[in-house]
Design a protein around this nucleic acid. Structure first.
Lengths: 152, 152
DNA sequence: CCAAAACAGGACGGTATTGGTCCTGTTTTG
DNA sequence: CAAAACAGGACCAATACCGTCCTGTTTTGG
């Protein structure tokens, strides 16, 4: 179905929530309550985001999580790759050179990168700051970016 | 891992193959041999593409498949939605209004559409014609430039 | 100094989707 | 009328994902 996992989905909701109230620190239970996402999931996701340096955490009774950078410095691409792994639509990533049965003949392989880049680029163009803005801003064109230039 | 299914993957390979030799007609066994994709899969995929009007088929002994339109008129988005269903990263498609537990509070929902559109738009910008071209179109530079800027 | 609250880091199972095969038609060529 | 190829499903095995739980470790406050 070509959709991202629920982890990333939830992750974006949580981060957007944090971005909208930036500065403050939120505990996992707090966030779970406010977003209606099951606590264990919230916990799991936040831990991952800390490991990827997108959140900072404070332990202890009054502990919690806060954004590691300004909302404008965190892209949707960052979140998705942190939670779902590298953004690679195709399996055709040339790490393991024997993995592709096509090898010599394929001829599409270079173009695979084109697709991956297009998507990655689209997702890099959307920041948390964008997601906290109510609606319909001129930023949208920026986000889709590449296409504009294509058609222009 | 945020990747498309193998069906779509294979589908793009097959269609690119056809686009590169446009005009001619290919049988499923032929395509299977040339792309090294297992025949049953090839068959299954081509049938789906016919149903979505991206291919036309001829039955009978000398039957086969051919593109339904010019390569430039078929986008990667077309292929993916034909094989993997509608391009919707999030489950948050408002067909069924009760499906989202957030409903009132969410506040991200509008922005979901923003992400979906960005990706859809990126994929609509790539046609089969692009994929048959060897390499290095103006698209590529754009991709690298922007990511660097964001991380800096 | 100890108890409670919160983060850290895994392990674990049920479920749904996907990848892939196969089978039974129907159409066309020669 | 036989063979080759498309049409349209049903079907199973493997995988990945969703969600939970358990056992630490750190910090606050009485």
């Amino acid at each position: 179905m070509l959709r991202m996992t629920k982890q990333a989905d939830y992750g974006i909701v949580l981060m957007t929530h944090l971005a909208a109230r930036a500065g403050r620190q939120f505990s996992a239970p707090e966030l779970a309550a406010e977003t209606r996402i099951p606590l264990p999931m919230v916990s799991k996701i936040l831990k991952l985001l800390v490991r990827e340096d997108l959140l900072v955490s404070h332990r202890g009774v009054k502990g919690g999580y806060a954004l590691a950078r300004a909302p404008r410095q965190i892209t949707v691409a960052d979140l998705i790759s942190a939670l779902d792994g590298p953004i690679a639509f195709t399996e055709c990533i040339e790490d393991t050179p024997g993995s592709c049965s096509q090898e010599g003949i394929c001829g599409v392989r270079d173009n695979w990168q084109r697709i991956n880049q297009a998507v990655r680029h689209a997702l890099e163009g959307i920041t948390l700051a964008d997601l906290t803005q109510p609606l319909a801003s001129p930023l949208v064109q920026l986000g889709s970016g590449r296409g504009a230039e294509l058609r222009a």
